[in-house]
């Protein structure tokens, strides 16, 4: 819902804190998740994720969530699916070129990012969307990535 997702952007700092705690908790659960099996968990967790993030952020289930990098404004709501910032077509009133009644997703993203602790994450260049991950759980993927990074610390 448009109104809810704009509310979420205004409370990006709260969601950032929540996500940090939530991620740590999920990472702690890794041994259990591994036992049940990530593949088996993917469908139900994705369903739950769709429910929560769909309500809050109008999540499109791209499966590679970048909300923390985009000020809690889901960039997949941009009609051009831009993952790296606003296009040049943003109207003078800050609305979308394609949908004139919608606030530009990246106007919101910029605003949301500025109230977050990690306000510089919006400056990182995002990889192209992997369309093969559409519909899968981004939460479980994140946990596996974090666990993997803990086991293989990046070389100095």
């Amino acid at each position: 819902m448009y109104k809810v997702r704009r509310w979420a952007v205004r409370h990006s700092h709260f969601f950032e804190t929540f996500y940090n705690v939530f991620e740590k908790a999920l990472v702690k659960l890794h041994p259990l998740l591994l036992k049940i099996g990530y593949a088996r968990l993917d469908k139900p967790v994705a369903k739950l994720e769709q429910l929560c993030k769909g309500l809050l952020f109008d999540c499109k289930m791209c499966g590679q969530c970048a909300l923390s990098d985009t000020g809690m404004s889901c960039s997949m709501n941009c009609p051009k699916n831009l993952r790296n910032g606003p296009c040049g077509g943003v109207r003078q009133n800050g609305n979308c070129e394609v949908k004139p009644l919608m606030r530009c997703v990246w106007m919101d993203a910029w605003q949301g990012s500025q109230t977050m602790a990690a306000s510089d994450r919006i400056f990182a260049v995002q990889l192209p969307v992997n369309h093969a991950l559409q519909g899968s759980s981004a939460w479980l993927r994140k946990v596996r990535d974090v666990v993997q990074q803990q086991h293989e610390p990046t070389p100095k």
């Binding site: 790296n84 606003p86 077509g89 943003v90 109207r91 003078q92 400056f123 260049v125």
Partner: peptide, 21 residues
């Protein structure tokens, strides 16, 4: 680059991203 469309204060950062890319 379009310095003339909002959000104006993000535009130079977006230029930085394009250079980084």
């Amino acid at each position: 680059s379009n310095p003339f469309a909002p959000p104006y204060d993000f535009r130079p950062h977006r230029l930085a991203k394009k250079i980084a890319a």
